[in-house]
Design a binder for these strands. Structure first.
Length: 305
DNA sequence: CGTTTTTGACCAGCGC
DNA sequence: GCGCTGGTCAAAAACG
């Protein structure tokens, strides 16, 4: 129904305008929770997460996600308007046709927007993650599917079968600090200047042995307070901070993969850490949204009929 | 002393 | 074929 328009809308937004989108601040509905006590810095947050390249089938059935979130589906993006800021939790899920991937976006204002595309997903995600990657991913995907090996010669080099597609998603966070604490330990292994941007992109790897997860952190070139964190891969272990601190214990995973679990963990950690910097009222408001509190029990419920 | 960061070099893929 | 770019490696430096 409106899914197509949602996709189109979002796609156009992400096309080279990701930064512009975020530079607009949450005027389109996402709440901006500003200011620590001093109103200084990292208090203002505008986190969003964009799933990319996550085969829907590997996570759950098409209806599961909406059900998991326990919220309404397919509300038009346009309906978000300024009213979205009133604090009422809202989730929009367009699960697409099942063959596609899933691309939800979490807004910290209690709004969770899920926009999905099938073939266009990688382009959307890649805009957040780095446009070239998207193109590359798409092309590789195409070539893989078409069995085209004429152009792409995979050398058995030191990296083995490199460039295997990993689940990838991007957090977009408004923050003064580049490297946001997400509960995992990361080691920086590279940094590159980003084309058309004064800000470099940093490459991190999870320090846990045999954990293949990587992430890239870069700032929006249009709004230096916007940090784009792109995760790639799945953790093969539990979140160290969660295990220790146990601030968030998730139920046994509903999905066959731990990806979504990790995502929720990370989101939770981010929300936790940012919430800690909020004013009490804001904190109250925030917890009232109960995004994670709602999500997690829902997972348990739906997982056990 | 072990771990992490920095940084220049290298490699692969892609467009022209 | 060449140049550009993204991603990764690895040695050295910095840090706790």
């Amino acid at each position: 129904m409106s899914g197509y328009h949602e996709r189109e809308h979002f796609r156009s937004l992400f096309h080279d305008e990701l930064a512009a989108l975020f530079s607009q601040r949450p005027t389109d509905g996402a709440a901006c929770i500003s200011g620590g006590p001093s109103g200084s810095d990292t208090g203002a947050i505008f986190p969003a997460v964009t799933f990319t390249d996550v085969p829907l089938g590997s996570m759950m059935d098409n209806d599961a996600l909406p059900r998991v979130f326990g919220l309404s589906c397919s509300a038009p993006l346009d309906a978000l308007g300024p009213g979205g800021r009133t604090g009422s939790p809202e989730l929009m899920v367009d699960v697409g046709n099942g063959s596609g991937s899933l691309t939800p976006t979490f807004g910290c204002g209690g709004r969770v927007t899920t926009v999905t595309t099938n073939s266009s997903t990688s382009s959307l995600s890649a805009e957040a993650a780095g446009e070239e990657d998207a193109d590359r991913c798409k092309k590789e995907e195409q070539q893989e599917e078409e069995g085209d090996t004429s152009k792409k010669v995979k050398k058995p080099n030191k990296q083995g079968e490199r460039r295997q597609r990993e689940p990838r998603f991007a957090f977009v966070t408004e923050s003064e600090v580049d490297h946001l604490e997400d509960g995992y330990r990361w080691r920086k292994y590279g940094q590159k200047a980003v084309k058309n941007s004064p800000y470099p992109r940093s490459y991190y790897r999870c320090t846990t042995q045999k954990c293949p997860v990587k992430k890239r952190v870069e700032r929006s070139y249009q709004n230096s307070t916007i940090v784009i964190t792109t995760y790639e891969g799945r953790h093969t272990h539990r979140c160290p901070a969660t295990v220790r601190g146990s601030t968030l214990l998730l139920p046994p995973p509903l999905m066959s993969t731990s990806f979504f679990q990790d995502l929720v963990m990370q989101q939770a950690h981010q929300l936790n850490s940012t919430a800690n910097q909020m004013l009490p009222l804001q904190q109250l408001e925030f917890s009232h949204y109960g995004l994670l509190q709602d999500m997690v029990p829902s997972l348990a419920h739906h997982g056990q009929p």
